[in-house]
Design a protein around this nucleic acid. Sequence first.
DNA 1: ATAATTTTTTAATCTTGCCTAAACAATAGC
DNA 2: GCTATTGTTTAGGCAAGATTAAAAAATTAT
Lengths: 231, 231
Amino acid sequence: MNSTGSISQENYLKAIFKLQNEHGIASNQAIAEKLAATPAAVTGMLRKLTELEWVEHTAYQGAVLTPKGKQIATSTIRKHRLWEVFLVEKLQFKWDAVHQWAEELEHIGDADFTERLDAFLGCPATDPHGDPIPDANGDWAGNERVILADVLACNQEFTVRGVSNSASDFLRHLDALNIQLGKQFSVVEHFPFDGSWEWKDESGVNVRVSREVASQLLVELNRPQMSSKSQ
Amino acid sequence: MNSTGSISQENYLKAIFKLQNEHGIASNQAIAEKLAATPAAVTGMLRKLTELEWVEHTAYQGAVLTPKGKQIATSTIRKHRLWEVFLVEKLQFKWDAVHQWAEELEHIGDADFTERLDAFLGCPATDPHGDPIPDANGDWAGNERVILADVLACNQEFTVRGVSNSASDFLRHLDALNIQLGKQFSVVEHFPFDGSWEWKDESGVNVRVSREVASQLLVELNRPQMSSKSQ
DNA sequence: ATAATTTTTTAATCTTGCCTAAACAATAGC
DNA sequence: GCTATTGTTTAGGCAAGATTAAAAAATTAT
């Protein structure tokens, strides 16, 4: 039940998994782009992964994971995200610096190792970017409670729960704006002209947020609270 | 000052470092044996490491590390041993199970990463097998305070400080004998016939230790204590 | 000192994973 | 329905690291 691939193979499975979730199938070109490789390299690797029965690949169509391939992919993602938690919470890395190391650490260890790491970290539900950590069976919990920032109405209160972009420069920008996961804001105003926002945090401090930033935040709408005057 | 090699290169440097400490020079064959490779593979890699100026290699003689090569080797050993501490103390692995994983983890991270890990672990002086952890400059502290078991005289008290063999079966055998690092014993009797020993631990429990086991233990002799009658 | 043995090196090949360039499908435009 | 474009696959190669088998050097033995 628990075999494992080479580093390169695991990276392909991860990429295919994510593309499959977005588009139903992983095109050769999309895989190549995600892995910074050429489409020709992808064709070669897909042949190998097909032989291993970790993907089903139809020539000129695209690739889809088999159950076995999906198991390896989710296990790799699980390890990646657990290591990110370790790096931030235990080694005090900033959240924009953990991806590169987790990218290497995710290929180490077996199921026992992973469960020990998970237990040591207190079985975290999400990584430092708010992405859910799949459980040991590869199942995802609570992936659906986060929604895009666009739907926010005036005065709406919400909590920042995740980012849909983990690039260092974006994360450092959030740091500069003093926006952290779990922090609660309310909408002051929305400016349709450029799509930017003005928000207020819980201590009454206002932040201006560009459309580019807001559109990459995953938020959870707070249960509408009775305002002091309407009560 | 802080460059780094490929995984394979780092493993060669580690092997050469250890052989050099034992024999002054690392022969082609000894390296091959340590890395479970063929001598031909070693010749090829030594050529590369010589180009990189990490080793000095004289044909048909052997290899010696340059300062740069030594720095990479000790840094790799430092990381290996820090990770072993992590695996035992934080993830609750048994001490006979950590080597394989540390062997992979040791190739990950830069100097900053390593120092964060070190700080998180409380700057341990030794790994779970009692081997000293070199500091960030590659210097070794207290390597000399451990000596071989052969010199023990009757009634001598001593503390087990390390093992000169970290093979799983040996370590599990020590577990079965209830011998742990830091534990104190006194010599009851030595049997020259087969070189075996009888020892007594602090709670008065006797252990029989074969020559094979005793010769792989590194111990520290306790300051001779006045026995109750001789005082 | 010469022969026998051991160790090291060379030479040719393999595997994994990648690349470029060219050929081949599939889709889109008209 | 035929051409133009886009995406995919083949073909040939390269680099790292390893292998086996044979040649060369060094060491040991007589």
